[in-house]
């Protein structure tokens, strides 16, 4: 069976530090996989390697059986892998809806000729994109904030906006880096609902998550990382019961 996304023996070094050491795991269509591990385990580095922000030193990454290692970052997005960032990286001086518009897969109208010489056509494109972006904002429940600036919405809403931006790229595989960290109880519940809905709609998700309760809640599968290695992967019940992993996780290493 071909996995949606398959990471095989991916290794990445930073000047002598082995951030990833022959990592292997796979994601299946419509499943939520939680990437778990202590700080510095290499979770973000995995994201960077999958999305082409870093070139792995060894190993292959395949999307639906097609190798995407070494492909340029834009190409990978077009193939359907979208990501969010641990530190959000929203466009802070733009409005909520513009943050989404800018990320839409539809690249039409993004050139000066259309913008200046065909103003009416350009306006039509913009209106269409606005409509599309609004629909995406509805999926995460932010449509009422569309014309606010990023700085005017709450942290929880900013995190939802990150998801909306990834949705705008028409991703089939979503990589979310700590979407729930720092959220209030209500925002957290909201986020969990959004993730569940995405998964129900067929999205393949890889979510970095620190809270074991939430992991139990949303995960179909867990990948446990430590010091750049995948120590375990499988269904939550199995992985979360393992004492040795819990020790690593809560003991803060070694």
């Amino acid at each position: 069976m071909v996995h949606m996304l398959q990471v095989e023996n991916v290794t990445k070094n930073f000047l002598g530090l082995r951030a990833l050491d022959a990592c292997s795991f796979s994601l299946d269509q419509g499943e939520v996989t939680c990437l778990v591990g202590p700080n510095g385990a290499g979770k973000t580095t995995v994201f960077d390697c999958i999305t082409g922000f870093l070139n792995p030193d060894a190993g292959t990454i395949m999307l639906n059986g097609e190798t995407i290692t070494g492909m340029n970052r834009r190409k990978i997005v077009q193939k359907g892998i979208g990501r969010s960032f641990q530190n959000l990286r929203l466009f802070e001086e733009l409005s909520v809806i513009d943050n989404v518009i800018v990320c839409l897969a539809d690249d039409s109208g993004n050139d000066p000729i259309t913008a200046i010489l065909r103003p009416f056509h350009s306006q039509k494109i913009l209106d269409r994109k606005r409509g599309e972006a609004l629909k995406i904002l509805e999926r995460v429940g932010l449509e009422h904030k569309a014309d606010h600036f990023v700085t005017q919405i709450s942290f929880g809403q900013q995190k939802l906006l990150c998801i909306a931006r990834v949705l705008a790229t028409q991703a089939k595989v979503m990589l979310l880096d700590e979407p729930t960290s720092g959220l209030s109880a209500t925002a957290l519940k909201n986020m969990v609902d959004v993730i569940r809905q995405l998964s129900a709609a067929g999205m393949t998700l890889l979510v970095v998550e620190h809270n074991t309760k939430i992991v139990r809640d949303i995960a179909d599968k867990i990948v446990f990382m430590h010091q750049g290695r995948v120590l375990a992967s499988g269904v939550p019940g199995d992985v979360l019961e393992r004492r040795d992993l819990a020790d690593i996780y809560f003991g803060g290493g070694n």
Binding site: F53, V77, F91, G109, N110
Partner: peptide
């Protein structure tokens, strides 16, 4: 130009080029 979707994308690129790349621009 500034109010078109192109103009908005340019702003985004100035604000955070990496995020614009991650959006497939």
């Amino acid at each position: 130009l500034m109010r078109s979707s192109y103009g908005r994308t340019l702003h985004a690129i100035r604000l955070d080029e990496l995020a614009a790349v991650a959006a497939g621009r």
